[in-house]
Amino acid sequence: MNIFRFVGDMSHLASFFLLLAKLIYTKSSTGVSLKTQALYLTVFVCRYLDLLVAFVSWYNELMKIFFIAASAYIVYVVATSTRNSNASDTYRVEFLVIPALVLACFVNETHWSKGGWSLNVMEILWAFSIYLEAVAVLPQLKMLHQLEDTTNITMHYMASLGIYRAFYLLNWVYRLYYEGYWHPIAVVAGIVQTLLYADFFILYYQSVLLRLPS
């Protein structure tokens, strides 16, 4: 594992702890999009089905289990939060889920000549999870643009997700050059996803960094 991948993973891990800290210490899920969190849970469940059939490393296994468990817990907390003002969580997620599913059925890494149907279904779900992750942040971005007072911790959560994406891009450049590792589906979707965070970083710069006490 190279340093870019590791920093990306740690930033991703930090994003979970930031969101959990916000939910637990402020006892409020205001500003957190339930739709985005439910999409992330879907992403992790669909992508990490290989937990059952392929062992890569203890690092991978534990991170995958943590990502699924933590996102399930976050969805539970946000969904059951009585003080959640979800009036601005209005993104039409069917416009994300259905195109991602259709695209995954046509553009994927299946090899029907080898492997059973279940392995190929897992490939379709893997591609679906990649496409869905690329756009899953959009409901959260829409909320941030609509809400006046987004708490800084929600913004830091988004920033750590953006850093995670950026370091994964560096990781792919490194791996392509040194290992010949190349998953075009993941890379193209990863570039799209990172570009979406560029929009967020402009907002982050304006609303958080410019507001820092001098």
């Binding site: 991948r5 993973d9 991703h12 290989d50 392929a54 890569v56 490393s57 991978n60 991170m63 995958k64 990502f67 890494e109 090899h111 893997w126 994964y168 990781n171 290992e179 010949g180 590792y181 190349w182 998953h183 993941a186």
Partner: peptide
């Protein structure tokens, strides 16, 4: 090792 590399990322 160019095609069908194992998916060892998160």
């Amino acid at each position: 090792a160019s095609k069908a590399a194992a998916k060892d990322e998160l």
